[in-house]
Write a protein that binds this DNA or RNA. Structure first.
Length: 816
RNA sequence: GCCCGGGUGGCGGAACUGGUAGACGCUACGGACUUAAAAUCCGUUUCUCGAAAGGGAGUGCGGGUUCGAUUCCCGCCCCGGGCACCA
């Protein structure tokens, strides 16, 4: 019999079994305990890359592990199919984005199947299909009716040569990536979803997500950025609209020495009309980039507007400046500056020779020179008249009260979080279901006219959206008055599709509603796995959508994902794999050479999930070598013939040792996979056990029985990671059943018992000896044999023992 | 710039709740098998002193807490992710 490990044949056979028996197709069975295991669905780029293999393998291992725990596991797969790469491919190759996308999906689906992932493909979801996006359009019209969407002007990157709006990543050093033209800021009307209406709930529910990593929760908390402060009003000298600002530090109010407004602020626009220099500065501000990172790192610039505000307490004149670091779309578009106690204000004031006054002193009374740098901590108020001597809380309350009495200010909560701009001036996306009528303004498309179908057979040039040139698309009748009107040609941000796909998997074929009763069976997702790079945006938008879906009665779940696993990137030579760097590795080539199991094993063994994983050819070789050894170990064992039944009380020491290792390993691997998600250490433990098996060379009946027990355990607990080879080896071991339907092995605590244990002996914290003691020895006995150890004696002889620390089962530390 | 991670042998990593630093794998080296190579198997592999027994140093850098610190605290350095139109 040919027993060489041939991955191709083994993997084909296992796949056929799963397909023929529809192993991974699951229905809603109220008798069973459901477990919804989900991976962030991929963008169908056409090429499977190592990052995909890693994240899908992780999720598949968890799914198969949970199945062995007796759970009724749903693992679906789909495609985040709208987005820029399809447009870019269309420009480059002249292929319509739809055609390119569907071809990629077909290619990638085949690659996923080759990797042996246990998906219920009946539930496949493709976001660029009208059956999918019609419900997104429907939800948007519901939100419109509830007042949760609105339109306002907002800034985009405008490429004046290509006449196109650019994504941030298409702006390189302030220039368009294709035209090389200097990119301009342009304000255009866009649709927004009121995520800020849910800001407090999104923040509070983070505390109800114990299954999420603290780092992700912390990032979301900071992103939402709730801060309590006071909104207060400054009059403008000579009349005019008063200036409202928000501050979290009302205790520093008397330290205000200037004000700053955004370039788009009416005060700046007015001043620009009569002053060329200001006009030039305002025009200059329009050239800066929209990205926050660019804003924060650029040089802070400003100019005096020549007008002043009146300090609401002192009545003194405070000059108003226009500054490039104040954003119109953020807060009120104006800030009060306290250079004595704010880093950015201090730098700006120092640069422009504006006065700096100290109004807070340290609580410990220490002196400081405000000219050398600001004092930004809380302290005691000074030089501030009626609030002198107060601490932060007292001053806050006093200022709040004073302004409330005069009706000039109030306590407010401000968020860093901004409403979600969902309009994109692109073709390849979900059409926004709005019709503009000259008389009735913007109207949502009525439900019976949905979906607004995106035409797929288009010529795409990259200059503007083809929808703008298609009267058959944009010509529509006003839903309210029936007069000719114009359809919205902008499409949704692709984050909209990915904010609810997880729910649609539960009701993928429902054509009468967005979701049906099956939603309640599966949602929320029990285990969600995906890249850390999505820690904020995708996960926050999805949480927002879940709450919206709950509030329109589609779901009863408050949060979409109960447990979250964020996986690190795949690197090569210490850098992210990318075409630019030329350091990509095609998983397809590896699968062809070694098989899917080797690639899966390498991915799980090379690093723990959250960490970046360094790719290595040698590592893949090593994984393949292990599978061959595993294969041979099972076949060699089976070749020795019939196995005696295990007689626990007839075992010799070596047999008992192997049996102990087997049961310790069952316990460890179960803990690693089920609780810690450290699949790398689970694999390492499996390797150790297999090494121990091959080291037991005697072939007596009882040895053979102990080896059989060990090998069966390894086949069972490696089956989530390398399911194909384990499917085969389970049968080689003589089982009629399929390993995919087996339960997780149980460990026997008695087998793990040890008579004698090794204890480490330290003298003054340094390792000086190891002793063997009875497992049930008491502290004094352990200490006595520690002191008796020969090498320990060399270090304590003639010295007084000041202290003995005995850690049961671990170590003794003798302090002299 | 701000927020969140990470830094341990030649390399990937392990050490789970403060208790033996380097499990497991890779590489390299030595050996067995072979006419030879590949494959496979056995052994060595943190640095350093020593013939050995054994000693010293060591987890990015500088301090601190502790009988004991890779692990906790303070201050730095470097690398990665995110920063709202990449997905």
């Amino acid at each position: 019999m040919d027993v060489a490990y041939k991955p191709d044949r083994v993997e084909q056979k296992a796949r056929n079994y799963w397909d023929d028996n529809r192993c991974f197709e699951v229905d809603e069975d109220p008798e069973k305990d459901p477990f919804y295991c989900l991976t962030m669905f991929p963008y169908p780029s056409g090429h499977l890359h190592m990052g995909h293999v890693r994240v899908f393998t992780l999720s598949d291992v968890i799914a198969r592990f949970q199945r062995m725990q007796g759970k009724h596991v749903l693992q679906p797969m789909g495609w985040d199919a709208f987005g820029m790469p399809a447009e870019n491919a269309a420009i480059k190759r002249g292929v319509p984005p739809a055609q390119w996308t569907y071809q990629n999906i077909a290619d990638m689906r085949g690659q996923f199947q080759r990797l042996g992932y246990g998906y219920d493909w009946r539930r496949e979801v493709t976001t660029c299909k009208p059956e999918y996006y019609r419900w997104e359009q429907w939800l948007f019209t519901r939100l419109f009716e509830k007042g949760l969407v609105y339109r306002k002007n907002s800034v985009v990157n405008w490429d004046p040569v290509d006449q196109t709006v650019l994504a941030n990543e298409q702006v390189i050093d302030g220039r368009g990536w294709r035209s090389d033209a200097l990119v301009e800021r342009r304000e255009i009307p866009q649709w927004f979803m009121k995520i800020t209406a849910y800001a407090d709930e999104l923040l509070e529910y983070l505390d109800k997500l114990p299954g999420w990593p603290d780092s992700v929760k912390s990032m979301q908390r900071n992103w939402i950025g709730r801060s309590e402060g006071i909104e207060l009003t400054f009059d403008i000298e000579g009349g005019g609209e008063p200036l409202t600002v928000f501050t979290t530090r009302p205790d520093t109010l008397m330290g205000v020495t200037y004000m700053a407004v955004a370039a788009e602020h009416p005060l700046a626009s007015n001043a620009a009309e009569s002053d060329e220099k200001i006009a030039a500065f305002v025009a200059d501000c329009k050239k800066m980039q929209a990205a926050e990172a660019a804003m924060e790192t650029m040089e802070k610039k400003g100019m005096p507007l020549g007008i002043s505000a009146i300090h609401p307490i002192t009545g003194e004149r405070v000059p108003i400046w226009v500054a490039n670091f104040v954003l119109m779309g953020y807060g009120t578009g104006a800030v009060m500056a306290v250079p004595g106690h704010d880093q950015r204000d201090w730098e700006f004031a120092t640069k422009h020779q504006l006065p700096i006054t100290q109004v807070i002193e340290p609580l410990d009374g220490s002196q400081l020179d405000i000219a050398q740098g600001p004092y930004v901590d809380y302290g005691r108020v000074i030089n501030s008249g009626f609030i002198d001597g107060m601490n932060f809380e007292q001053a806050f309350a006093a200022i709040e009260q004073r302004f409330a009495e005069n009706n000039r200010g109030r306590k407010t909560v401000n968020y860093r979080l901004r409403d979600w701009g969902v309009s994109r001036q692109r073709y390849w996306g979900t059409p926004i279901p709005i019709i503009y009528c000259d008389d009735c303004d913007a109207q949502p498309v009525p439900e019976d006219q949905l979906p607004v179908v995106l035409p797929e057979d288009v010529e795409f040039t990259g200059v503007g959206s083809p929808l703008k040139d298609m009267p058959e698309f944009y010509e529509a009748d006003c839903p309210k008055c029936g007069k000719p009107a114009r359809r919205e040609t902008d499409t949704f941000d692709t984050f909209v599709e990915s904010s609810w796909y997880f729910s649609r998997y539960t009701s993928p074929d429902c054509d009468t509603a967005m979701l049906d009763e099956r939603e309640a069976y599966w949602m929320p997702v029990d285990q969600y796995t995906g890249g850390v790079e999505h820690a904020i945006l995708h996960l926050l938008y999805s949480r927002f959508f879940q709450k919206v879906m709950r509030d329109v009665g589609l779901s009863s779940a408050d949060e979409p994902f109960t447990n979250l696993l964020t996986q690190g990137m795949v690197l090569k030579d210490g850098a992210k794999m990318s075409k630019n760097k030329g350091n990509t590795v095609d998983p397809g080539d590896l699968i062809e050479k070694y098989g899917a199991d080797t690639v899966r094993l390498f991915m799980m063994f090379a690093a723990p999930p959250e960490q970046a994983l360094e790719y290595s050819d040698d590592g893949v070789q090593g994984a393949f070598r292990f599978l061959k050894r595993f294969w041979n170990a099972v076949h060699n064992h089976v070749a020795t013939g019939r196995v005696a039944s295990l007689k626990i009380d007839k075992l010799d020491n070596a047999q008992r040792d192997l049996r102990r290792k087997t049961h310790q390993t069952i316990a460890k691997v179960g803990d690693d996979m089920g609780r810690r998600y450290t699949f790398n250490t689970a694999v390492a433990a499996s390797m150790e056990l297999l090494n121990a098996v091959t080291r037991l060379e005697d072939t007596s009946p009882q040895s053979s029985a102990v080896v059989r027990e060990a090998l069966e355990a390894v086949v069972l607990f490696l089956s989530p990671i390398v399911p194909h080879i384990c499917h085969e080896l389970w049968q080689v071991l003589g089982h009629e059943t399929a390993v995919v339907d087996e339960r997780w092995p149980k460990f026997d605590a008695n087998a793990m018992q040890q008579d004698r244990i090794e204890i480490v002996v330290q003298v003054n914290g340094k390792l000086r000896g190891k002793i063997s003691v009875a497992a049930d020895a008491n502290r004094d006995e352990v200490a006595a044999s520690a002191i008796a150890d020969e090498n320990v004696q060399r270090f304590i002889a003639g010295k007084e023992i000041r202290k003995q620390i005995v850690v049961p089962g671990r170590l003794v530390n003798i302090v002299v």
